[in-house]
Design a protein around this nucleic acid. Sequence first.
DNA 1: AAATTTTGTTCCTATTATCGGAACAAAGTT
DNA 2: AACTTTGTTCCGATAATAGGAACAAAATTT
Lengths: 259, 259
Amino acid sequence: MTKSASLEKGLLVLNLLDGTEQPLGIREIARRLSMAPAVTQRMVSTLSEYNYVTQDPDSRKYKLGYRALSLGSNMLSDDALVSSAMPELRRLADLRNLNCYLGVVQRNSLVYVLAVQSSGPVAIRSAPGTVSHFHSTAMGKALLAATDEETARALLGSEPLAVLTSRTMTEIDAVLDDLGTVRRTGFATSIEENLPGIHGVGAVVRDASGKAVAGLSVAYSPQISPQQTIEAAARLVTEAADNVSRRLGCPLDRLINAV
Amino acid sequence: MTKSASLEKGLLVLNLLDGTEQPLGIREIARRLSMAPAVTQRMVSTLSEYNYVTQDPDSRKYKLGYRALSLGSNMLSDDALVSSAMPELRRLADLRNLNCYLGVVQRNSLVYVLAVQSSGPVAIRSAPGTVSHFHSTAMGKALLAATDEETARALLGSEPLAVLTSRTMTEIDAVLDDLGTVRRTGFATSIEENLPGIHGVGAVVRDASGKAVAGLSVAYSPQISPQQTIEAAARLVTEAADNVSRRLGCPLDRLINAV
DNA sequence: AAATTTTGTTCCTATTATCGGAACAAAGTT
DNA sequence: AACTTTGTTCCGATAATAGGAACAAAATTT
């Protein structure tokens, strides 16, 4: 695969600016990326022309522009999946005080597409576009369970599983074993396996062809919400996932709580 | 301002892919951008390597990748303004069934940063990053009114004002005249000036230095919500804006409803 | 089922955009 | 007021890019 060096440099500038809070000057960007200031200047000027970056009028430093925000937002608004899931997530977040997520598999990665924070005390931040792990999250395990073992192994990857908490499953076979339970019950759990002190419950959303197209999950802190139980959350999640699936035209017998 | 031709081509590919719903093939992208297929291939490969675009495994066509989604989302989560405003918008959207927006001025453009749709029947879509007009929206006029006439003229631009509805103000001087009322009352209105059948009310948010840093607005359809009045909406909007300003450390005497 | 068009992708070299040191003016700092 | 550091421009040596041609794999048509 041949690649364009100049375009790559521009993307590196975007990545850098996306990762830093404060605006950066041309020479500082150049330093961090080991590029010549003149080159950096050219990249930044081009990015600026397309509003991917903007220059602060006072400090003359650069930060991400609004195009960085708007890029990809059409993916959300034009999407049947997103518009079907949004009301369900909002309902769960508002009425039940849960942090709700919708995610899809893209290029063997688990990507969050929607994140609706509960208005309650703990907002578990996870911005759209963020990549997460299959083996440690309830959403990830729910999606794994909807595939065969071969695909699941491919999604888990060849590298050692990342250890995120003391309860993260570290063996691929242990994860695969867990999927049997997920398939039987219709939902997956993550008991402090992804974030310390956070419980998650996830289930899959299916489209008209019955294929699993997304994972829907909720997360909460049992320390702050002691009245919340896995079982109650599982009921809410599977119902919400089924509601979305129904809206996508999924056959009724493929729903988690099939009739 | 010199610019990088290759980077520009890559950005054009992103713009194209962002604007089309269906995935596009290499040769189709090349055709629409008048580029050679081999060149397009190189750009797309590079963008793909950084996950800005992904290739559909079946059709081998390309669409935006998850990096297009995640780029810029840190702007939202790390931002004091956004995290201060989000709860207020959510409250207005949920309890009062209003579509709520937060926007800032960037590079002489009015950019939506947050959009919280009401769970009610009419969701007035406006994705984050979208650019809107100063002269036709309540948020825009509120922000204009917070500046002096010279700055306001600069923000309105030199081109003729876009006509969006039959009630859109088309004369710059008429808009500037209107700002006096906005300054006196503390809020701006848009009565079907931006979207037919949609009323909007907006006010400004100020930071610790008292500077207007953002506009907060709500929109609703009076046909569907006949009980809603401009006056009631104005009270909610100015209160919400003041709450956000307070959270940003704004001096109390600079608030709209000053003590 | 065979023929044909269209697809994504790679190769290659003339061409052209890019690189980066040097130079400049404007801010900021000492 | 002297000095440093900043964003920005210039320009010749250089290295990356452009794009036609070629290929194999799909998709389409015959």
